[in-house]
Design a binder for these strands. Structure first.
Lengths: 212, 212
DNA sequence: TAGATTGTTAATCGATTAACAATC
DNA sequence: TAGATTGTTAATCGATTAACAATC
């Protein structure tokens, strides 16, 4: 299992496989062929087999793939059984939505702290986690072996927060801001969620469709 | 300007160009070369020139690109001056965050209605827009020429909602649910935001890094 | 004019798809 | 054994990068 050279494109498809396999499992489908899975995923049987074979031979000739086994394998590859400790910074609308809404325990994470700099809401709770004062961020991260941060602050606050986190060893970021982490910290591991970028591409498509 | 054959990869980079150009404009940078822009974007000068040339010759030999003109052109290509009327369905955490947080008027949209099926919160307001009863969705969309919908409902509710919207002519979706719109409506224009998929890929990267 | 930098064609690289022997 | 379907190699396609003549 030489994962060194597995392309980002393959990795990005894994959660999709995982979701569809979960659905199949719920429908009590026991086995599936690459062809059928490709149909569901709107891709080709070739791609399904290529993708899965990056990680090992999960299928059986003449039979296909065991749905539950394959789902299990993908969970393992993604590392969903981890409990990476994470903090969320910024309990505004987006931050609250993320904290309240995501099932972190199914996604390899455990949310252990929520931070904000608004003194008025400190101590309030979101899903049993109290909102802590941002000034205690470093001590908290060090004491709790925090490994990841979910950045839900305004862009103007992000630079400072990321610097502080990076300095106390938190180098993995789920970034909802437009602050460009990789620009300042090329070594950081980052997944950006630039919601407005995505909405702009929807705008583009609609704009295009109108012209035709 | 034959946009017919412009690849999705190019389109997805446009919002990024737009953001960096906005920053350059704020810093009062007047002109920029493909090389400098590439440095900022962490790509190659070749790619920058190829991308921009899909839409026309915006540069000047020996000079580079005018920041403000290029920004303007990209805005035009994306169609950000549109005011596509949109409704948001589901005013839970995510829906509220989206409604309150996004600057739709800068992104080619105008949010004209928010809908929910929770009778208890009907009439409440998010950014001056009252929450309306979901049962009036069709009539509202028809009366207001709604063209897009932002789906922030639970997955279980999405199938029904999308069907109803599609039937009354709303065929463009910004989809925060895990309901697979393209599966049922291949003709719909969809941008999915699968937050948990993104978090899983962060998990993968962290898991990878640990093993080394 | 000389230097800089584009627009564009050609070369390379990587990802997707097709084909088919291996095998359950 | 015959049919199905994988794993894997080869062919194709598309996207990125390099090169360079055109030109401001």
């Amino acid at each position: 299992m030489n994962k060194e050279n597995i392309s980002k494109s393959v990795i990005r498809r894994l959660p999709r496989y995982y979701r569809f396999l979960s659905e199949l499992e719920e429908n009590e489908t026991e086995r599936i062929s690459s062809g059928k899975l490709a149909e569901i995923m709107r891709t080709t049987a070739s791609q399904v087999r290529q993708d899965l074979n990056c990680f090992g031979g999960f299928g059986h000739q003449g039979y296909g793939y065991s749905v539950s086994k394959l789902k299990e394998e993908i969970a393992k590859i993604l590392g969903l059984d981890n409990k990476f400790k994470a903090v969320l910074i910024g309990s505004g609308h987006i931050g609250t939505a993320i904290a309240a809404h995501m099932e972190f325990n199914k996604l390899g994470f455990e949310l252990v702290g929520i931070f904000d700099n608004n003194q008025e809401i400190l101590g309030e709770k979101i899903n049993d986690l109290e909102i802590r004062d941002e000034k205690n961020l470093e001590s908290f991260c060090e004491e709790n072996n925090v490994e990841a941060a979910f950045l839900c602050v305004p862009k103007s606050a992000a630079e400072n927060i990321v610097g502080r986190l990076y300095n106390c060893g938190v180098k993995n970021f789920w970034n909802f801001t437009h602050y460009y982490i990789q620009g300042d910290y090329p070594e950081a591991t980052v997944e950006n969620v630039h919601l407005s970028d995505i909405l702009m591409t929807l705008c583009y498509s609609m704009n295009e469709a109108e012209e035709d």
